[in-house]
């Protein structure tokens, strides 16, 4: 199973966020493996004083996605994964289906922060910047419509 994932753009997240320490000039954190995880300040800064967003995004920029099962949805053996920030939310949906061994017709609902279901074409990096908490993008998943 792991072998399959190493070929996908999603990579298994073996480092916990606390081990990712080196800040770069964009307020991103460099992990020992040199991949980048966006961090969001607990104290939101004003738009003017914020550091510029890295528009020429590093193709290696990653977001830590934390999956949380809701209701009777099966839990994952591992719930932290890193995903490339420029990927679409569809990639997260496809990955979770594969991880749960769910077929296309099996119902599966994904939500951000137990609040709303992003469209499949929303960009993971945007979701992280707007809705990330404590270094993670929290994705709740359910086999029935939970917050829809």
């Amino acid at each position: 199973m792991r072998g399959l994932h190493s070929r996908s753009i999603l990579t298994s997240k073996r480092d916990t966020p606390t081990r990712l320490t080196t800040l770069d000039r964009f307020g991103c954190v460099r992990s020992p493996s040199a991949s980048i995880v966006f961090t969001m300040s607990d104290n939101p800064t004003s738009p003017i004083s914020s550091p510029p967003t890295p528009r020429t995004a590093n193709p290696a920029a990653k977001v830590v996605v934390r999956f949380r099962a809701t209701g009777n949805a099966p839990i994952l053996k591992q719930n932290f994964y890193k995903i490339t920030a420029s990927q679409k939310f569809q990639t997260v949906m496809n990955f979770l289906r594969k991880e749960l061994n769910y077929k296309a017709q099996d119902p599966l609902f994904l939500y951000v922060n137990s609040a709303f279901a992003p469209a499949p074409d929303e960009i993971v990096g945007n979701l992280y910047k707007c809705f990330g908490t404590e270094g993670n993008l929290i994705i709740n998943y359910s086999t029935t419509a939970a917050w829809g």
Binding site: P44, T45, S46, P47, I48, T53, S86, E122, I123, N126, K129, C130
Partner: peptide, 24 residues
């Protein structure tokens, strides 16, 4: 190009300056 979406505050921290579209 990819859609841009990021947190955009409407006023500054001291609530004494409204940001304009130009600021954003």
């Amino acid at each position: 190009q990819p859609v841009i979406q990021e947190p955009v505050a409407p006023v500054d921290d001291n609530l004494d300056c409204e940001y304009t579209l130009r600021d954003i």
